[in-house]
Amino acid sequence: MKKRKLHHTFDKNVDHQIEDLEQEIGSLLDEYDVEYPGEEQIIMTIDAMKPYVPVRKNKWRTVLRGMTAITKQAYQEIFYMSSLFWIANGLLIAAALSGVLLMKADPYAMVMMFAPITTIMGLIEVLKSRNAGMAELEMSYKYNFQEIMLSKMLVVGGFNLVINLLITLSLGMFYQEILIAKMLLFWITPFTFIAALSLLFVSRYRQIYAITAGMVIWLTVSGYLSQPQIIEKLESLPAELYVTASAVALILSLFKAVHIYKRGVLYEVNH
């Protein structure tokens, strides 16, 4: 009993001495910082590890698991989108509706012109630094960068869908002669096309200024497309052509999304 007590006293003394020593030399030890490897080197390590990841037993189950993770993450991303994104898009609906209702602009041309703008604006959100803020940092402990990026793209795409359906339905209520199917086709085609281009773009370039360039290019193109004679030509094109173009763009988007998910983003920049 006495021996045990002595041992306990000795342990307590050592604990105090350790604490004292730590305090004594702590400020000096703090100077021993570490120069960490760069992102490229970390990616090299991750790539070296990939062959050792256990082989998936069921491919479809893994795909489903990945999609579930992205959808879950997308739900959280809604709350992290900046207020500027929502305000800008609110103004966009107002501009599209007032363009058609007050200025008597062609509804099909208007829908075609505005369809990709939400996506282009959303790219700013997608390209924001992934380490901006604790919330994003916390997420990076649960999801990898590809998952975060694809989930943001899902939010942007989903929001575009809602916003354009709203515009289409609102215009449909005011103009009985409007063909809803035609409106949807005029929206879906540029939207899928721009979505495919966006996925290609975000996997290769991460500069925000390039988005401004993209926006200017699209506004110039849409300015040209909104000319009456061009609209007439576009409207005379067979619906099959729009459907085919949309299908091709959709397949490209899906292919690119899977590619980003599997290979990563910086990987492509470096190779």
Binding site: V34, Y36, P37, I42, T45, I46, M49, K50, V53, P54, V55, R56, K57, R61, T62, R65, G66, A69, S140, Y141, K142, Y143, N144, Q146, E147, Y261, K262, G264
Partner: peptide, 24 residues
Amino acid sequence: KEILAGSQAAMEVLTRKYYKQIFA
């Protein structure tokens, strides 16, 4: 669990989370 099910994404997340600590 996800790594055991074959997820490379989960492997990447876990590696990034501890990389700096282990390197240090």
